[in-house]
Amino acid sequence: MARTKASGAPPSGAPPSEVQPDGIDLPFAAPEVSVAYGRWLVHLGAERRMSPKTVEAYGRDVRQVLAFLAEHLGGRVTLAALGRLTTADIRAFLAARRSVGVAGRSLMRSLAGMRSFARLLARDGLAEITALAAVRAPKVEKTLPKPLAIGDARRITDVDLRAGEAREPWVLARDAAVLALLYGSGLRISEALGLRRRDVPAPGAGDVVVVTGKGNKRRMVPVLRPVLQAVADYVALCPYALPDTGPLFVGAKGGPLSPRIIQLVMERLRGALGLPDTATPHALRHSFATHLLMRGGDLRAIQELLGHASLSTTQIYTGIDSERLLEVYRAAHPRR
């Protein structure tokens, strides 16, 4: 089958595919591929329980691969064509994406999406894309926000810094409480804004928050008394009712608080305190882990606090070297 130059556009003159019953229309793919693609998206959300944004990202990545293959192979992508793919075809896609500046992390996600799609095709007996197993994932530079200095992190989460701002007191208290949770308990911004009122105890009524992390996994995270007090101050000032099962943090009109609001708060603080652009909400979580480790915190305990499935993720996240990781492993393994 003829190969053509790399491109993300469908081949010229290719007839558009019919709109499938599930609403998926891929003009660069045969109808049976479009139907399988639609089933795969449903599978990701319903069976794999991925978030809508993750499903959207995976779907976009696989559409890009299929669009490239249509141009590369010279016609609409069929199930038979997918089964005949070679490692050279897959590498051609990766090379084409790299040529337009796509980074390794995005390429790795594209491969992950195609492999997931291929598993569904194989499960349903539609096609076996063996070439994907022979292609190595691209190398990814492990870049993370730099941790803040302890003093800078404390200044950012100091409520007094917000005194005198031309915003309502309850809004200032809300922002202070969110930032306190990011640094004081190491939460992701999505986890902090996903808290329900009942997930956070009042001061003196408990010392853990119940967090829903990635994959809807729930975990309990210790919380400092000053952080609980910051949350209590916000609750006392908030003009909206905060039912136990509703969101803890709300926006100006009483709806769920947008992450963008907290990002803008950090932007203002960066300017006021002369901090670098790396001082983001996620950098507070990174700082939480790094500062605990600097003070002698146990790596496995930090892994649990962060909600990491793998210790190696925590190793990268905290920037520790391999020797320190081996020390933790030797100390913790039951057959040491």
Results as ranks from 00 to 15, higher is better:
V235A: 07
A92V: 08
L193V: 05
V135E: 10
A137L: 03
R98S: 14
P52E: 12
R196H: 10
A67F: 01
A92M: 06
A272I: 04
F28Q: 12
A279S: 11
P11T: 11
I302G: 01
D25R: 15
P239W: 13
D22N: 15
V19P: 11
V42R: 14
P226A: 00
I129W: 05
R98W: 06
A230K: 03
G297S: 05
M220W: 00
P222L: 05
I316W: 01
R154A: 13
Y37M: 12
L41N: 10
F28R: 09
Y329Q: 11
V102G: 10
L121V: 02
G204F: 08
P31C: 12
A166T: 12
T87M: 08
A29E: 02
A153D: 00
G184W: 00
D298L: 00
D199V: 02
G75D: 03
E165G: 12
R123G: 08
R39S: 10
A205T: 09
A180T: 14
A241G: 10
V250R: 07
R136F: 00
L41D: 08
H43S: 11
A9L: 14
P11K: 11
A153P: 02
P145A: 06
T314R: 00
P147A: 10
R60D: 06
Y234V: 06
P203S: 06
K139P: 00
L121S: 01
E165R: 15
L228K: 00
A332C: 05
L179G: 03
G274N: 11
S110D: 05
F28I: 07
K146Q: 08
G59A: 04
R225F: 07
L26K: 00
V328G: 08
I302C: 06
G13E: 08
Y58P: 07
A205M: 07
V250H: 02
E168L: 15
H333Y: 14
S287L: 04
R174Y: 14
S310A: 14
P145R: 01
S258A: 14
L224E: 14
G13F: 09
T212Q: 12
R48D: 03
D158K: 04
G307R: 03
P226Q: 04
A272L: 08
R48K: 14
A205Y: 01
T87P: 03
R154G: 13
E18L: 14
I24Q: 13
P52Q: 10
G23L: 13
S287H: 03
E56I: 05
R136A: 14
P10H: 06
D25T: 13
P21D: 14
A112D: 01
R197C: 06
W40T: 02
S106T: 13
V159G: 08
A30F: 09
W170S: 10
A163V: 15
L248Y: 09
D175S: 13
R198L: 09
V55G: 05
L66Q: 01
A252G: 09
V223Q: 02
S185M: 09
P16Q: 15
T212Y: 08
S287M: 03
Y183F: 13
T278Y: 03
P203H: 05
H333D: 13
F68T: 05
L66S: 02
R225L: 13
P31S: 15
Q263K: 04
L107W: 10
H43M: 12
E165C: 10
T157E: 07
T245A: 15
D207F: 06
V159P: 15
